[in-house]
């Protein structure tokens, strides 16, 4: 791109003659950050990798015994862990689908001349900026079967949102959709505003139906940005902890992050939970890799 302009890292350059060389400055600027992240992100992970092969329990003074791959074997053959994974998969599916439908729908509605559009957009974006744990907690009152406003407005009498094991996961996903549909909306709006107007005009001249225009022009052109939103939200939904933890303690809403938290900090199975964390980590790195690859592809366009 601008490689000719790219500064030459020559220790004897003109600028270096009077001050620090570019090479020194580059190292001075970059190395502390890398070092900081290695010390506080990578080193801890190596630390827990070592623990993942032991039966260590942080709650006792007993020394850690090396157990080899036993923890991994136990975890992968534990049916409860698989149920945590399937609950998480179900949650990701419900919540991301909901966010895409609501978010993209809102963006389609907003993508026209509307009074006070800027203000409305900002107000719609407010939920995603708020704390999931703190605002999520308040939904407990909104969902209350006796005096919650949701049951009142929907005319549902004493409907149990959070106490019903089958409903609770949906109830949590609804809060997540409320918070994060605006994110999909924001990205979709950017995608929609980039669709060239002349395409719509051409479609109109050809007397294309609204549905045809949507599926042949709008959707394909917004798809790349929408895809970013979907991958991003999938990753975040996979990690969900705060919302589910404050709203419910049902076994049917025990997402991976919650199981991991309980295993590590309530049951104090430090070695086992380290192994579990590694299984999760590998999955996240795989998703992140896809995400970054895709991001670079979109950026390159």
């Amino acid at each position: 791109m601008a490689s000719q302009v790219m500064t030459n890292l020559d220790p004897k350059s003109r600028a270096a003659a009077k001050g620090l060389s570019d090479l020194t400055i580059r190292n001075l600027f970059i190395i502390p950050t890398i070092a900081f992240l290695i010390i506080f992100n990578i080193f801890p992970l190596l630390y827990s990798l070592a623990y993942s092969f032991t039966d260590f329990r942080a709650s006792t003074r007993a020394p850690a015994n090396f157990v080899g791959l036993q923890n991994y074997r136990d975890l992968l053959s534990d049916p409860f862990i698989w149920s945590n994974f399937s609950i998480t998969a179900k949650y990701v599916l419900i919540s991301v689908t909901g966010q895409v439908l609501v978010g993209f729908g809102l963006a389609m509605l907003l993508n026209r001349a509307i009074p006070a559009k800027g203000l409305i957009t900002t107000l719609l974006l407010l939920p995603m900026m708020l704390s999931m744990a703190v605002v999520g907690l308040f939904w407990k009152l909104l969902y209350d079967p006796n005096f919650g406003i949701i049951n009142y407005f929907l005319g549902l009498e004493k409907f149990e949102w959070l106490a019903d094991p089958d409903m609770a996961l949906y109830a949590i996903a609804i809060v997540d959709i409320w918070m994060w549909a605006p994110f999909v909306m924001l990205l979709s709006l950017a995608g929609l505003s980039a669709v060239p107007k002349h395409l719509y005009e051409a479609a109109e001249i050809d007397r294309a139906s609204g549905l045809y225009t949507f599926f042949r022009i709008t959707l394909p052109l917004v798809a790349p940005i929408l895809m970013i939103a979907i991958i991003f939200r999938t990753m975040e939904a996979f990690k969900t902890f705060d919302l589910a933890y404050v709203l419910s303690s049902q076994p049917t809403t025990e997402l991976i992050a919650i199981r991991l938290y309980k295993m590590a900090f309530q049951e104090w199975q430090t070695g086992m939970s380290s192994a579990f964390a590694y299984i999760v980590l590998i999955m996240v790195v795989a998703i992140t890799n896809i995400y970054v690859k895709y991001l670079n592809k979109v950026k390159a366009r």
Binding site: I30, T33, I34, L37, F40, N41, I42, P44, L45, Y47, S48, Y51, A58, M235, F238, K239, F241, I256, A257, L260, Y261, A264, F265, T270, S273, S274, A277, V280, L281, V284, V285, I287, T288, V292, N296
Partner: peptide
């Protein structure tokens, strides 16, 4: 690009995964 990916990936981990070793350290 690898460094930038490395920098980003540290943010993508679930907090509880990082919290277990951090708590011990």
């Amino acid at each position: 690009d690898d460094w930038l990916f490395f920098i980003l990936s540290t943010r993508m981990l679930p907090p509880v995964v990082v919290a277990i070793p951090m708590f011990l350290m």
